[in-house]
Amino acid sequence: MKKGLHPLVMIALVAMVTLAGRALPTWTLSLATIAASNALIALGIVVLARTGNVSFGQGLFFAAGGYGVALIANTWGLTDAVAQVIVGAACGGLLGLVIGPLIARYSGIFFGMLTLALSMVFYGALVKSTALGGSDGFNVGRPSLFGMSFTDPREADFMLYAVSVIVTGFAGIAATILFRSEFGLASLAVRENNLRVEYLGLSANRIISINFLIAAIFAGASGAFALMAQRHIDPQFAYWTTSGEFVFVAVLAGNQSVAAVFVASMALELVRSFSNLYLPNTWQLVLGVFLLGVILFLPRGIGSLWIRDRHRRRHISATPPLTAERGAAP
């Protein structure tokens, strides 16, 4: 029925993209690194959005991952890039494990508001904590990889690019498998009618919590990448506008295609760097217009351009939705 790339083909693709980094000029390399890292957190938002819940507070897990890695790096001298990603994912995941079940029962804007509130609580705490540098944050050293340290900045950039592309690539493959799975289908069902899901003996809250956890893990790992790329962290990681940007990538991508998330993230970074270069102070403007355009003309994201959507093409007009002929209760 649904066709898609075989996981092995996807692995080959990831390998190709990684090697292609050798040929890229330096500026594209760091741009692609950020795009991959942003794609990872946006992918988490997409995973969660498939249950119908949009998180406006992924900055919480992003910052948790970033600060967790930064602290461990500075305290115990853990500089290995892969280890840092794992630590970041673990920090995000642990937080997600605690918060997910607490907020799974909310929906719609309440869900959005609550995630936003929690990230702002964290932001407020970070600004206040002088031990963590307050609103200025603090710096961390260059990451290493498997005991190698990179003094040549070009090599360091490529290392970071490779690690982020590989990690994000594998997260993408995992998400593809997840979307096609039994659990992935049930997640879509939750979005449409969570009450019926409960009536079928499934727990909508559990399904949301698990998706939330996955999103939090992705966000934490993404925070680790952002930290490695900037070698600096500050409370801005948790601020709501940071989360908003990731939501932007997720909306742009839509929730049908994992590849769309990467395309959207790369497009965003390109727009950002070009407008920074040529039209200062307009990139948010461009972003806003873009977002409106996507919502208006591509309500299912750019993914709908090449995923011949399951059934949406033919219109819903075939049968008008049933309305209650009589009052439903009592």
């Binding site: 102070n281 307009t282 990139w283 948010q284 403007l285 972003l287 806003g288 217009v289 977002l291 409106l292 919502i295």
Partner: peptide, 8 residues
């Protein structure tokens, strides 16, 4: 989106 636009 309106927020982003007005910001700039």
């Amino acid at each position: 989106a309106v927020f982003l636009i007005l910001e700039d």
